[in-house]
Design a protein around this nucleic acid. Structure first.
Lengths: 341, 341
DNA sequence: TGGCCGCTTGAAAGCGCTTACAGGATAGGC
DNA sequence: GCCTATCCTGTAAGCGCTTTCAAGCGGCCA
């Protein structure tokens, strides 16, 4: 006889107490005689009682659920943020509800609607598509929001890597190897971090006394294939770059293919630096030099901030994490005999 | 004055109807006068009403949530299954709750407990750690379960790729290139699909008239580094293999490194075939030949089966999907001048 | 032994929604 | 214009849990 899964009422009857007492034992919200508690625990054990999270959520007005908005779970960048957030959430008894923008044909706000209907207690927005206007709308909801690498603003908490510094690390590294013509493949237009990294790139060039050449900056790249094409174009230039700083590692991989197609070699002819430091960086040939972003840590911090706010504690409005440069085989000294051509 | 988010009661009052009528309009569960409906809709619009999913779930005993158990979201294999399941679930108004085994320090059954507390309506188990005993325990819960590439059994629905056939495709391809000493790096012990692929490997060898050499089969590999070490060992053998069939693409990448370390080349000295067909296969050098597994499709099918069961329709107990071989640059004809050594 | 105090415990009212069930409005037939 | 059949709508009882409030219990001191 498969008896239905037991309710709190069943436990109460079995332990000969009221449901209030069972609730108290289950949550430890009030003192209970040791004897009584033992009876209740035994009953819970015996029946295999599992509290009903929905009912609990309804009664407490807390779903113990965190919403996490991302652009694409297939992108390791986001996957690791998810991991970090889940780890922190889990340790606090929270669950993470994923909103993956690329799953939905419809707009992102429908996604948010889904999450809000689920009554998430707070929201982490890691999606790179987030616009200011959209984020502001989010903030008008009455739950705490924290953005990861999103637009800075007063409306929400933020966790950011220091993008300018990251870009600077890349450019300085390339310059130290003798490169003077350093191209930059930027992020897609509208990605909030794009401007920051570009600014860091320009600032570093300036500080190093290198000239800024707009023709070496490619905008509007949205895929590996895009990046491939863009780099192919750059290599065809009369004054082609000897080094490429890509907005992220995937764009860098696109650059790899273009360099190979052009019959050139990395790093002998062209050096490449990516951004993110994905697992695959170690396995591509040559291994990719990249600006490391502690993504998992960022996810964890975001969840941490959210949980703090939910607990009524004060939480920092802005957390900036430090990038670092991981030097691998894709960068080398510029060849002595000047640029090709 | 940030007024609280409106309840069904607020809508009802605003539209001068009862909450029952609002509910009927919101769900379309019963006829309502056109005039009344218009009033209600306007009120919902005006107030920005968003039904409370928890309350609804409590009343209907349906959470409209699917649980999805995976081993690691950072592994693209799982990530794509998640994507597929989410796509299908989303289109049916369901939400997917992820249970990532690698997030939890504790055992997997705690993970399941979390999901069950959340009252998921059904469960997809894609985790490769799933043992028969554990799965059986799952099945004793009163919700439908479907396993992806899990152990076959009577207790749950299953979605499987034809592993034997996949292994056969790999071996036949290598044999057709002249290879006779084909090694196999198997999956971790306990991974249910391991036996199937191994069986396919052996069957293919037999059918092709090739001898089976146990020293060419490596078991117990659980990481890329493991695979690297195992392959290093193989290459040191007096009668080293000229081709390697890896349990998955990540193991194949480990093999790449070992081959390079040994001063050998792919595919000139050693051919490599992986399993899964991940995105990175196209970007590693040389591009990896691999047995394609339609992971997203499998996730979608799993969700589909689950939804069918939940809808009270009959659903197939076992869905077998077809593998295919994607031939890239990592496999080539065996060199004429016999094996090295 | 009586009175008082500090505990633990139970009764009951919600949390926001769905859904029989019954009541009232509407329309149709005469 | 009256009666019945049909529909729409409202009332109220839950769904499983938390939490206030008051009652009950035992122990202590006088």
């Amino acid at each position: 006889m498969a008896t239905r899964t037991p309710r709190i009422y069943d436990v109460a009857r079995s332990a000969r107490v009221s449901i209030a007492t069972v609730s108290r034992v289950a949550n430890g919200t009030a003192r209970v005689y040791e004897r009584t508690e033992a009876r209740v625990r035994r009953a819970m054990e015996r029946l295999g009682y599992r509290p009903h999270a929905l009912a609990r959520g309804l009664a407490t007005r807390r779903s113990h659920t965190l919403g996490l908005l991302i652009t694409d779970i297939l992108d390791p960048y986001f996957a690791e943020i998810v991991r970090g957030a889940q780890e922190r959430a889990e340790s606090a008894g929270y669950v993470v509800l994923l909103g993956d923008a690329s799953v939905h044909t419809s707009a992102e706000d429908l996604l948010v609607k889904r999450l809000l209907e689920r009554r998430v207690d707070g929201l982490i927005v890691a999606s790179s598509r987030t616009t200011d206007a959209y984020a502001a709308q989010l903030a008008s909801e009455d739950i705490p929001v924290v953005c990861i690498n999103g637009p800075l603003g007063q409306f929400a908490h933020a966790v950011q890597i220091d993008h300018r510094k990251g870009a600077r690390l890349a450019v300085e590294h390339l310059a130290s190897l003798g490169h003077t013509r350093i191209a930059h493949i930027t992020g897609a237009v509208g990605v909030p971090t794009r401007q920051e990294r570009l600014a860091g790139y320009r600032a570093a060039l300036k500080d190093l006394g290198l000239s800024y050449d707009p023709s070496l900056v490619i905008a509007g790249v949205t895929s590996i294939a895009d990046s491939h094409d863009a780099v192919a174009g750059l290599l065809g230039l009369a004054a082609a770059p000897t080094a490429i700083f890509a907005f992220n590692d995937r764009w860098a991989i696109g650059a790899y293919a273009a360099v190979r197609d052009a019959g050139l070699r990395i790093p002998a002819d062209v050096s490449v630096v990516g951004f993110d430091d994905l697992e695959m960086d170690e396995w591509v040939q040559p291994a990719l030099t990249s600006v490391r972003q502690p993504r998992r840590e960022m996810g964890r911090i975001a969840a941490d901030v959210l949980l703090a706010v939910l607990a009524g504690e004060s939480a920092s409005e802005l957390v900036v994490v430090e990038p670092s440069l991981v030097i691998r085989g894709s960068t080398g000294t510029r060849r002595a005999h000047a640029d090709r051509h």
